[in-house]
Design a protein around this nucleic acid. Structure first.
Length: 351
DNA sequence: AAGTTAATAT
DNA sequence: CATATTAACT
């Protein structure tokens, strides 16, 4: 509506043409001359080919807008979560025709249908939407028409982890579907998806609270962790190294151990005992958007974490998303024994 | 509209 | 049977 900032305006703001127009948060940012042109390749073609790096085309304004949007979105929520919200600048699109809502990014969450329509790797034109090519690889199935029903979402370990992270971050008290969904920042994830998963998670928590192993030191969050804005918990390692680029990295690490099975633990892969979560603060910001799409389908369970059709074909592991290594589905939901067996749990391999 | 909970569906 | 979706209710 009232937000139509053109490139010219932006540049002006950034380079200080209009000092007064420059918002405080913009001070210190490099101006357009200092930045690498979007059209510039970061590595030479030779190098790229040498390492089999797909010659992904340069980024376009679409990417910039998208990134900005995501970043701000996360920051807002984060700020909100910590109630130190200081009105962040509102995101403004820098013009560009097609701004699709689709994202691409790292990990996939859904799988394709029974493998039928699987891949369509048409790398035609590829103007500014080239990343769509990448998208095509993981996300299959772009339900765009209201007619298409989304295929059953598969809560892969990655997705679940993110879910747990967010819930832990918010505190079970403030963890409601919409907020969780937003903080998770996963592309195709709907509020309903989250609500459903949350329902299960709560049940799990409830039934788990009877016998959580005394886990030594920290309080398991099981029942009702103190909500209030902050609850950072111990320092223990922190996972996400943030940083865009590869994001993910790290994870794992920390000793964890703490022998107890500690309930919920599963959440954040690596123990670090307390359920609550790590990420004291710079949390949400470190998340990279995820993409989920695709589906599970089929009968038997073989939800794969990979979103890539091909991967599905290989069905790398095959078995429940969460169990990965372990038997049955003892995960948080199942486990009729009630015992919380410490799971190596989800591969800390991060996304 | 959004959150829960219960009922279905896969 | 477990998990995910959809309906129902608040």
């Amino acid at each position: 509506m009232g937000e139509e900032v053109q490139m010219s305006d932006c540049e002006k703001d950034v380079r200080g043409g209009d000092e007064e127009r420059m918002l405080e948060w913009e001070v210190g940012l490099p101006n357009t001359d200092d930045l690498t042109p979007l059209s510039h390749y970061l590595i030479s073609p030779e190098l790229a080919s040498a390492f089999s790096i797909s010659p992904e085309p340069c980024k376009s304004m679409v990417d910039v807008n998208r990134a900005s949007e995501n970043a701000l979105s996360s920051l807002r929520l984060q700020a909100q979560a910590f109630s130190l919200n200081k009105s962040l600048p509102s995101f403004k699109k820098i013009d560009d025709p097609l701004i699709v809502e689709e994202e691409e990014e790292d990990d996939p969450g859904r799988i394709t249908k029974d493998g039928s329509d699987a891949r369509k790797i048409r790398r035609l034109d590829i103007t500014e939407e080239e990343d769509s090519a990448l998208r095509m690889e993981n996300s299959n199935e772009d339900y765009s028409s209201p007619a298409l029903k989304r295929s059953r979402l598969v809560w892969t370990p990655q997705l679940h982890k993110r879910f747990i992270d967010v819930v832990g971050h918010l505190g079970i008290k403030n963890a409601v579907p919409k907020t969780i969904m937003q903080l998770m920042n996963v592309e195709g994830l709907t509020r309903e998806n989250v609500a459903s998963h949350l329902q299960k998670y709560r049940l799990y928590l409830k039934r788990m609270q009877g016998f959580e192993v005394p886990s030594s030191s920290d309080h398991l969050f099981a029942s009702a962790p103190e909500p209030q804005s902050l609850q950072e918990s111990s320092g223990t390692g922190n996972v996400n190294g943030t940083g865009t680029g590869t994001g993910t990295g790290t994870g794992t690490g920390n000793g964890n151990g703490n022998g107890n099975g500690n309930g919920n633990g599963n959440g954040n892969g690596n123990g670090n005992g307390n359920g609550q979560m790590q990420l004291p603060m710079p949390y949400a910001a470190s998340f990279m958007p995820m993409q989920v799409m695709g589906m599970a389908h089929g009968h038997s369970h073989m939800g794969m974490a990979v979103g890539n059709p091909a991967a599905v074909a290989y069905h790398g592991y095959e078995s429940h998303p969460y169990s990965m290594f372990k038997e049955q589905q003892g995960d948080w939901s199942g486990n009729k024994f009630g015992l919380a067996v410490s799971h190596p749990h989800v591969t800390p391999n991060d996304i």
